[in-house]
Design a protein around this nucleic acid. Structure first.
Lengths: 216, 216
DNA sequence: GCCTGTGAAGCTTTTCACAGCG
DNA sequence: CGCTGTGAAAAGCTTCACAGGC
């Protein structure tokens, strides 16, 4: 099977497989079985084979998968063969942490500008970048010949206005850390990361475990 | 339907509904329809009604849902009626951002201690807490009478060892920001947040859009 | 013999559409 | 009449189990 649309769940797992494969490549491993790779990625062998089967037939029966080849194929499918440019809006503590996050640059995500609304922060340097005023977003995106991804690290109150600005500047992918649902046109993709939501989901499972512990 | 197990997907959406309801309550809204609430939460009316139906029957036909009552019911189901204690391991930039994250304390997640392995960081103050050495984790968790949730904000290389320590200290819920799959016993719940994975998923969608734009 | 690739079965989740009730 | 609650249908996803090919 080739170049069809992948299931959402498969798309979400491919980066994890990729991470595991890069780890293996770094240790000099050249061939890996579905069982081994699935274990590393926290998945299972059947799932992994099914996922990879959507991309094509890259394995060798009786042997396994070639690590380098798989890295290349998954990268291709994820659109990672070229670098992606990123801007960050909101230079609070979270924004500040994201600028320096080593995982981004390692994986080809280049942060080209950072923004804040607060005059006290504008003009300061952060990891080799100068914090720009939010009003400059459009012009700086243009100067960079368009930007792929915008990260929103502002308070919830500012997030929708920032999202509107990002969309107007032509950005089509948004990673939103603000705890609010932002509205964007259909052609713009949003990933929402809400840290409190994660803790609340954990809280649900903890409570369930407690109930069992108490009642049973 | 009452006190059964909720679908995983429902559990993941409840915190988002809760966030929207708290927003409405803050604006003095007392009654909300499934249509309005779903819009705010980025869901749809049918989905929302189905999700809420797992918790019980709280709506009034022809009218809608009572905002305060729903807040209370969802909080109960998520185990949020009491505060949850949290420790953070890893006081790099991300860990530092998490300690001060206002969403945590607002929602009843109390950070009781923070840890790092680096002697240069141990002993320093961060948001009113003193950074402790990782080796003290067990004893400090005990001093607090047990801790609900551990957040891993270390590099990938340290994450598994930290996870082991958290589990040994009796912690049953882990939020892992390190880009690696950690192994824990079945009774421990892990939520994985990988920032690079999110960008890579966006990259996939951007590439798909590009292909359509170029080829069609 | 061994591990991949994949139809088919089974399960979960979403959507539909309307009965039920204030 | 309007909006909830919910069976039933549809869609999506995972697991099974084995054929296929090195």
């Amino acid at each position: 099977m080739k170049k069809a649309k992948l299931p959402q769940t498969t798309v979400a797992r491919l980066p994890v497989y990729l991470r595991s494969l890069v780890y293996l490549a770094g240790r000099g491993v050249q061939i890996v079985s579905s069982e081994e790779l699935a274990q590393l990625a926290g998945s299972n062998a059947a799932q992994l084979r099914k996922d990879l089967s959507y991309l094509g037939e890259f394995g060798t029966r009786g042997v396994g998968y070639d690590v380098d080849q798989l890295i290349n194929e998954i990268s291709k499918w994820l659109g990672l063969l070229r670098d992606r440019s990123v801007v960050i809006a909101g230079m609070g503590r979270l924004g500040g942490a994201l600028v320096g996050y080593p995982g981004f640059s390692q994986k080809g995500f280049r942060i080209v500008a950072v923004f804040d609304h607060d005059p006290a922060k504008v003009g300061r340097g952060v990891d080799g970048l100068i914090v720009r005023d939010m009003s400059e977003l459009g012009s700086i995106v243009s100067q960079n010949g368009g930007v792929d991804i915008g990260i929103i690290a502002t308070p919830a109150s500012a997030a929708q206005a920032v999202a509107d600005q990002l969309v107007r500047s032509g950005i089509r992918g948004i990673l939103n850390f603000a705890p609010i649902t932002i509205e964007v046109p259909d052609e713009v993709f949003v990933r929402q990361v809400d840290l409190s939501v994660e803790l609340q989901i954990l809280s649900y499972h903890l409570q369930k475990a407690e109930r069992v512990g108490v009642l049973v």
